[in-house]
Design a protein around this nucleic acid. Structure first.
Lengths: 346, 346
DNA sequence: TCTATTACTGAAAACGCTTTCATGAAAAAG
DNA sequence: CTTTTTCATGAAAGCGTTTTCAGTAATAGA
C-alpha cells in the first residue's frame, strides 16, 4: 500500500533454477519442451516456474536466437474500414497461435517504411504482413534478399518472390460494370483508385473490358482518377456530373469513393438511385448501413487477413517453402443504390 | 538472383565500430545522443552507420536496460468502430514519437490478459494502454505494484493508482435523455451496457437522473440490459416493444445497440423516427452514415486515444509523477433519428 | 559383468546492446 | 607551470535467454 514500492525485477530463469534445484540450462529446456528432459525434472521446473510466477523475457529469448513470437503489420493507416477489416482477420487468425502483433502505420511518412522494415527484419518480428504497400520496391528487395517471411495483401505487382493474397479485382469490376449494363446504363462513370496499386489498375481494366464486351466505347471523359478516399470520390464525381452528357451510373473503385460520390450527387440535387446509380467496391461495414444501402463488390477482407496469416506462418515454419499466391473471389452484393435506367418510364 | 541466398546477419554496433575506428561503446554513445562525444567522432560514427546500413537491434537494446520503444495496447477486440477509433487516435499521436505499437487483443479469452500483462511488464513494452479493460483487478494490481506506466481508457472504476482517460458518461446520458424529454417523450426505453463497465453504470445513472429531474419515474420495465453489441440491442428492443405501453423513444447505451434497436423497430413494422425515436452513444463513424442518421452522444474517441498516449508518455518520462485522470466532454449530436412526440398532430 | 548406446544435465559461450568504471587528454584554475 | 576540473574514450560487466559441447547416469546389448 506504500507509494514507493520499488520495481523488483521479475523472476528469471535463474530464480526458477534455484527454486527447482537444477541448472538454468535445464530450466530453459524444460520450459521449451525439449525432448530429453526427465519427466520428473520437467515437473519440478514447471512447478517452480508456476510458484514464482515466472514469465519468459521475450527480448532475451529472441536475442539468444529464439523466436520473437511477433508478427509485424505494415499498413498505410488505420483510418478506414477496409484496412481495419483486414487487420481484424489477421488478429482473429493469429489469436489461434501464440504470436502477437506489432503494428506499424506509415502515415504518409513514406520514408519510414524502409526503416521499419529494416528493424523488423533485424529480429523484431518473425514475419511481416504488408497491407497494400504503396512504394514497395525499396524495402521489398530487402525482404526477399534476406528471405524474410512476408506476405503482401492486396498488392500483387511486385510479387515474384513474395507471398501474395488478393482478390479477383478484374472480375469484380467486370461483374459490377456488367450489372450496370444489364440495368440499361450505357454511360457509366468510373472513379479510379491510386495508380500505384495493382488493384486499382485491374479494376479499371475490368470496367473497360465489360464495356468492350458490350460493344460500348470506354470514354475518357467518363473515367476519372480518385485516390480511394471519400474526398477523392467526391471530387471525381463533381467532374463526372459536369460533363455535357452526364453518366446515369457511377462505378467507384472502392466504397469510400462511392460514399464521396453519393455525397456529391446529393449536393447536385440528384437522387440515388433514381437519377444516378452507384456501385462501390470492398463492402466495408458501412456499405450496408449507408443510405441508400450501397450495392458493391465484396472483397473477403477479413478472410484475406486470415489467409495471409496462414501463409505467413507456413513460411515461418518452413523458410525454404516457396511463397504462395492466393486470389480470393469477389462477389457482387446487390443492395439499393442502383436502379434500372428505365425504371420510371419503362 | 540466386534462390539460395543465405541470410547474412545485419551489421551490428561492432561493425560500425570497426568501420569508424572507435570502440563499440563510443558507437553506442554517439548513436544515442550521449552528450560527451566529440562532434567529429559522432560524425564519423554516423557516417559509418549510414554506410553500413546499420539498424539497432531492439531486443538487445532493451535487454541491456534501454527502452524497448514499444507501447502495448490491450483491447478486447477489433470488431467495432468504437475501439478502432480509439486506436486510431493512439496511433496518430504515437506517430509523433519514436514508439511503436504492440497490439494485444483478448478475444474473450479472458484468461490471457494476465499473461499478456505479465509479459509486457517483463520488458516487452515501456508502457501499456488498456482499452475498456473488463476484469481488471487481476492484472491491474500487478501494474500498480510494479509502478508500470499505464493508462486506462474509458474505464474508471479501479482508478486509484492508474492514469485514466474517459468521457462525461453521466452528463452525456443526461443530455440525451433530456433531449428526448424536451421532444415530449415520457416513456423512454433504456438499453444498458455491460454492468462491469463504469461507463455503462454512469450512463444509466444519467438517464435516471434526467427522468427524476423531470419528475418522471424510471420504470424497471423500460430499463433493459444489453451488452454493447448490435445483437444485444436488438434483443433488448424486442422486449421493450412488447411491454404493454411501449416506449415512444429509446436511448441506447451505445451506437451498436442503437443499430440493433433500429433493426428491431423496423422489423416490428415501425418507422424511425416517426413511430419511435432512437438515440445512441459514442458517435462511431457509422452513426452518420446509417439511415436515418443517428442522433447520438459523441464521445471524442480519437481524442481519448491521443490524450491517453500523452499521459502515458509523461509517465514513462517521469515514473514518479502521479497518474493523472482526464475526463473529456461528450456532446449531443442531433441528426435524424428523433422526432417530437407530437410532430404529426401538434 | 563389462561395454556401447542412449538419456539427461551442467558449464559456458554467444546474442547485440547499454552503462559503469577507469583512464587519458584537454582545458581551466591557481 | 602545476593542479584541478571537465571532456572523451575504451574495457568490461551485465541484461535473460538459447544452444553447443561435454560429461555423467542409466539402460541395453553381449
Amino acid at each position: 500500500m506504500d507509494n514507493d514500492e520499488k520495481k523488483q525485477s521479475p523472476p528469471t530463469i535463474m530464480d526458477v533454477a534455484r527454486e527447482s534445484g537444477v541448472s538454468y540450462a535445464t530450466v530453459s529446456r524444460a520450459l521449451n519442451g525439449y525432448e530429453f528432459v526427465k519427466p520428473s525434472t520437467r515437473e519440478k521446473v514447471l512447478l517452480a516456474a508456476e510458484k514464482l510466477g515466472y514469465v519468459p523475457n521475450n527480448q532475451a529469448r529472441s536475442l539468444a536466437g529464439g523466436r520473437s513470437n511477433l508478427i509485424g503489420i505494415l499498413a498505410p493507416a488505420l483510418d478506414n474500414g477496409y484496412i481495419a477489416e483486414i487487420i481484424r482477420g489477421i488478429d482473429e487468425e493469429l489469436a489461434k497461435s501464440s504470436y502477437n502483433l506489432i503494428l506499424y502505420t506509415t502515415h504518409r511518412h513514406h520514408g519510414k517504411e524502409s526503416n521499419y522494415v529494416a528493424s523488423i527484419v533485424n529480429g523484431v518480428a518473425d514475419g511481416l504482413l504488408l497491407i497494400v504497400p504503396l512504394i514497395p520496391t525499396t524495402y521489398l528487395d530487402a525482404l526477399r534478399h534476406q528471405n524474410f517471411p512476408h506476405v503482401l495483401i492486396d498488392q500483387s505487382d511486385f510479387a515474384e518472390k513474395s507471398g501474395v493474397v488478393n482478390a479477383t479485382n478484374w472480375q469484380g469490376a467486370y461483374d459490377a460494370t456488367q450489372y450496370l449494363l444489364q440495368l440499361g446504363h450505357q454511360r457509366i462513370g468510373f472513379i479510379g483508385g491510386m495508380a500505384e496499386l495493382s488493384s486499382a489498375i485491374e479494376r479499371l481494366n475490368g470496367y473497360r473490358t465489360a464495356l468492350e464486351d458490350a460493344q460500348l466505347p470506354s470514354l475518357d471523359e467518363l473515367i476519372t482518377v480518385g485516390d480511394f478516399t471519400e474526398a477523392g470520390g467526391y471530387a471525381a464525381t463533381q467532374k463526372l456530373l459536369n460533363v455535357p452528357h452526364r453518366p446515369t451510373a457511377i462505378f467507384a473503385s472502392n466504397d469510400l469513393s462511392a460514399f464521396g460520390a453519393m455525397e456529391a450527387i446529393r449536393q447536385h440535387g440528384l437522387r440515388i438511385p433514381d437519377d444516378i446509380s452507384v456501385v462501390g467496391f470492398d463492402d466495408i461495414p458501412q456499405a450496408s448501413i449507408a443510405h441508400p444501402k450501397l450495392t458493391t463488390v465484396r472483397q473477403p477482407l477479413e478472410q484475406m487477413g486470415r489467409v495471409a496469416v496462414k501463409m505467413l506462418l507456413e513460411q515461418i515454419e518452413d523458410q525454404s517453402r516457396p511463397p504462395r499466391r492466393v486470389t480470393l473471389a469477389t462477389r457482387l452484393i446487390v443492395r439499393d443504390s442502383c436502379q434500372s435506367l428505365h425504371a420510371d418510364n419503362g
